[in-house]
């Protein structure tokens, strides 16, 4: 025991140790504050929270769980990208192979169930925020950021839905993307789009409207698969991460978790 203690003391006096950990052990209130403030992973978390902020009955921890699930989705999604080709020839058989032969292909099930769970927890989080009136000033901006995050979560689910490239995926996305036809002005069946024309040439048609931009074609095909893949893996997550940073930051700045202001 004494040897261990000696070793421990020696280690803590090396330059290497001190270059990484700038402060002593978090045994005083000041040190504990400094530890949190100077650590990149911990600094997002406030140094001090209200007692009510960690009461489970009040917060349900739904925001935290949602963030945790997001991390699970990032980790499993990253791994799945090693075994998935976003091409019409291979997308479906790659999914079959995840079940049949890929080592720990259960990753796909984690990803899928995690996604379902995330949608549920996001909704519960919204519900909780709404029920506790936490959307009220000064948190109204963060509520709006939250609404955007909800939309992004749903878009992640929608884009991920196409990737297995089975019949369900293709037709569900066909149906879903048909909604974009009705975009005002920008969808070729949407209100006002018929007004946008030069002479007989209509400016908004099935070959250039909002749906076309979403699918990269007139129907769900190779272009749509690739587009959805890029959106699912890069586009939407990047936006979501930025908004999440804003969201967490504003939680602190707008008076902490959901307590009375």
């Amino acid at each position: 025991m004494a040897v261990l203690k000696k070793l421990w003391d020696y280690t803590r006096n090396t330059q290497l140790w001190n270059s990484i950990f700038r402060h002593g052990p978090p045994d005083t209130a000041r040190n504990r504050g400094l530890v949190v403030l100077t650590n990149v992973f911990l600094h997002l978390h406030p140094v001090k929270v209200r007692r009510s902020g960690i009461r489970l009955r009040f917060t349900w921890c739904m925001g935290g769980i949602t963030f945790f699930l997001f991390l699970v989705e990032v980790a499993t999604g990253l791994l799945l990208m090693f075994y998935y080709h976003p091409t019409v020839e291979y997308a479906y058989v790659d999914i079959v192979d995840l079940r049949e032969q890929v080592p720990l292909g259960v990753m796909r099930e984690l990803h899928r169930w995690g996604a379902h769970a995330m949608v549920i927890t996001v909704w519960l989080h919204m519900l909780r925020v709404f029920m506790t009136g936490s959307y009220k000033p000064p948190r109204e901006f963060n509520w709006n950021v939250g609404v955007l995050l909800l939309v992004l979560t749903l878009l992640l689910s929608f884009t991920g839905y196409l990737l297995p490239w089975d019949q369900l995926a293709m037709w569900a996305v066909t149906v879903g993307s048909n909604m974009a036809r009705a975009t005002p002005l920008l969808g070729h069946e949407g209100p006002g789009s018929s007004l946008l024309k030069i002479g007989d040439i209509s400016l908004i048609n099935a070959g250039n409207d909002a749906r076309f931009a979403l699918l990269g074609g007139r129907f769900v095909g190779a272009g749509a698969l690739l587009r959805f893949y890029v959106l699912h893996c890069v586009g939407i997550p990047v936006v979501a991460i930025i908004l999440m940073a804003v969201h967490f930051w504003r939680v602190r700045k707008d008076g902490g978790i959901s307590g009375p202001v």
Binding site: V88, E89, Y90, Y92, V93, P103, W165
Partner: peptide, 30 residues
């Protein structure tokens, strides 16, 4: 993964493709 004796046996048949969801996919018979 090092040197298993139990392995999936597979023949890839790109000359006899399979029609899956409007695409012709090489078979991998296991």
């Amino acid at each position: 993964f090092v040197a298993p004796s139990l392995k999936i046996q597979q023949v890839v048949l790109d000359k006899v493709p399979l029609d899956i969801n409007f695409a012709r996919v090489p078979r991998a018979d296991r």
